[in-house]
Amino acid sequence: MTDPSTVDVVVRPAGPVDRTIVERLWLMFRHDLSEFRGLLPRPDGSFRDERVADAFSSPGWAPYLFVRGEHPVGFAFVRALDAPVRVLNSFFVVRGARRTGIGQAAVREVLARHPGRWEIAFQYENPGAVAFWRRVAAGVAGDAWTEEPRAVPGRPELPPDVWISFTCGRPGG
């Protein structure tokens, strides 16, 4: 695997000027997830996007954009910054940048900006995500992380999400 500290990616807070770029990346993200959860676009071709609005306007949220050179290559939404446990709500790297170390470098940068306790959800049906998030947890927390399936609130027809939990940086936030 590529050493994340040598990867050429800039992780920066996404501001209002970046919103259109993040919205376009969001469509790719939701399209990727549609494979694992049977999601279909709305009649206008878009996917649900309230998390984009939350990331840019709700207290306790922070959107990040990942850029390589002049190319946007991904994003992350962090929520619960005002709570004891931060949640990596959404994380995406475009397919053309995957398996290059960009994802590892980007997530480590996001986590480092908000040290403390973290939770991140993924789906067992997505084998790439399973392997990626387990590597992230082991890389930042060694053996001090947990993995737990949890029902998706309000969606009993869906398989449970899998949540990893760990602390990075200084304990306790």
Rank of each mutant, 00 (worst) to 15 (best):
L111S: 07
A112M: 11
R113K: 10
R113W: 05
R113S: 12
R113H: 12
R113I: 01
H114V: 05
H114W: 15
H114I: 05
H114M: 07
H114K: 08
G116R: 03
R117D: 12
W118N: 01
E119M: 09
E119H: 07
I120T: 06
I120P: 03
I120R: 07
A121E: 14
A121Y: 15
A121V: 03
F122G: 07
F122R: 09
Q123K: 09
Q123G: 08
Q123D: 15
Q123M: 15
Q123T: 11
Q123Y: 15
Y124T: 00
Y124D: 06
N126V: 05
N126I: 07
P127Q: 11
G128L: 04
G128S: 08
G128K: 02
A129V: 01
V130F: 06
V130A: 08
A131P: 04
A131L: 12
F132K: 01
F132C: 01
F132G: 01
W133H: 05
W133L: 04
W133F: 12
W133G: 02
R135D: 11
R135H: 10
V136K: 08
V136T: 12
V136S: 05
V136A: 03
A137R: 11
A138N: 09
G139W: 01
G139M: 04
V140Y: 14
V140H: 13
V140L: 12
A141M: 10
A141L: 10
A141T: 09
